[in-house]
Computed example of a mutant assay.
Amino acid sequence: MLSTRRKLLCCKKEPKTPLGFCDGPSRATGYLSCFYCGTEDRYCQPYDPENEFHEAVCMGKLKVVLRLLMKKNFHVNDEDEGKRTALHFACFYGHIDLVHLLLFEDCKINALDNQKSTPLMKAIQSWEIEIVSVLLHHGADPNIKDCNGEAAIHHAVYVDRPDIASSLLEFGGNIEDTTKDGLTPLLLALRERKHRMAAYLITNGANLHVCDQYQRTTLMYAVKWDCENIVEILLKKGVDHHLKDTFGWTALYYAVMGKRKTKMVIIQHDLLLSRQQNTFTRNEPEDVVSSGYHFESKSLTSVCARMEDTANLKTQKAAQSSSIGNGPEENEIIEVWAEKCPHPELRDYCHLASRPMPETQQSQTGKFC
């Protein structure tokens, strides 16, 4: 009886979505506190000094630091057992005056501790934007990676600080740098539900079409956290909601099975696209489809001159038997109004269209489109 009860209590529910990606409620509201983050608090580890010199740096005692350096008791680049230098501690505890002093004393600006973290990373972890700026102006490398394969911009994502990310990108930070798991800053921001950072990266040229190791797209991650505004932005910028991950799931399928509100955003976007693509099939005079004309494929990339008067249709004759067919008769070519074209970006232009060939010629040369 007891063993049966234990089994019932210990059994886990089968995930509704692959690996539980969209299971449970979506916490759409973003928080800065790591308590609400989906991952373990990576910055809660103690960063305590192990000697008198580093302790004075941590406490911001400038005079004590100067005295210890002048007496030659300690060197500016002395490391403790964790390979941490005084600059690591000064950046982590936000003492910008000590940062200036240590840089003046020619300390190692890109020193690595035992986790391969740089002083720049420690300043980012503590949200010290002013210190970040000072380090970058003195030549700190923003693209060094720690033991987790994460660069400074990834740490800026974890703390959700677009202002820090802006400084890093200004000084050569890579907006497409990947972690060991292959996550770009944008994918990482969406995975960690850092929507403010995600929005910044989207508007500053980040690649929207990247995928994680399971081929999950940026749109799928936005659906996971039910972030409607980001889903709408990604759809408008051309992220395909029909793409499938390695489990065969699409973003819409995740939204439906996860009971996300974003499913309506995707559906409405799909309906809008369908209306735009079907605009040219309206029953109007001289309708292209009803009259049997086909768009010439090359006209989609080389558009004609813009038409000013949309009330009239112009016709022209062209002998293109070599490219269209070998019949004795010339093939009729007309200009078609762009409002009938399914491509919205070309609606201010007219395109070439050709009258279809007889079936006997189509069987020989193939359909002209």
Rank of each mutant, 00 (worst) to 15 (best):
R161M: 15
E130S: 15
T178K: 11
N143Q: 07
L201A: 02
I129M: 13
G139F: 04
H138R: 15
V157L: 02
T184N: 06
T203R: 12
A199H: 10
N207L: 08
P142N: 08
I153D: 00
V132T: 11
G139A: 09
R196C: 15
T179C: 05
I144Y: 04
E192T: 11
H137Y: 12
K122R: 11
L169E: 11
G149V: 03
N110L: 09
N114Y: 13
R161P: 03
T179Q: 09
K194G: 02
K116A: 12
D113W: 02
I175G: 05
T178V: 15
G205M: 12
L188H: 08
V132R: 01
T203H: 14
E150V: 03
K122C: 13
I131E: 05
I202W: 04
N148R: 09
G205Q: 09
D146T: 06
E150W: 01
S126C: 14
I202H: 07
S166L: 09
F104E: 15
N204M: 08
I124T: 07
I202Y: 08
Y158C: 10
F104M: 12
D113H: 02
P185A: 11
A206H: 03
E170N: 06
I124M: 04
M197G: 01
E130V: 11
H138S: 14
L190R: 00
I131P: 00
A199F: 11
K108R: 15
C211P: 00
S133I: 09
L186R: 06
A156D: 03
F171A: 09
L201E: 00
E150I: 05
A111D: 05
A165V: 07
T184G: 05
V132M: 09
A140N: 08
K180M: 13
Q213K: 10
Q125C: 11
E128A: 15
L168F: 09
H155F: 14
V157T: 04
L186W: 04
P119H: 07
V210Y: 08
L112E: 06
V157D: 03
V210L: 09
G205N: 07
L187I: 12
K108T: 13
S126M: 12
F171D: 04
D160V: 01
L201H: 01
D163R: 06
L208G: 08
Q115T: 14
G173F: 05
M121P: 01
W127H: 14
T118M: 07
S133T: 15
T179W: 03
I202R: 03
K116W: 10
H138I: 11
G149T: 07
I144Q: 03
I144L: 15
E192D: 14
H138E: 13
A165R: 00
N148D: 12
D160R: 02
N110K: 08
L190N: 00
L112Q: 05
L120W: 03
A140M: 10
K122E: 12
L136A: 01
Q213C: 13
G172P: 04
E105L: 15
Q213T: 15
I175A: 08
L190S: 02
I109S: 02
G182Y: 07
L112G: 01
H155D: 06
L120G: 05
N174T: 06
L136C: 07
D160K: 02
D106M: 09
T179F: 07
K145N: 03
L190K: 03
N143V: 05
L135D: 04
L187A: 10
W127R: 14
A189H: 03
A140E: 05
A152H: 00
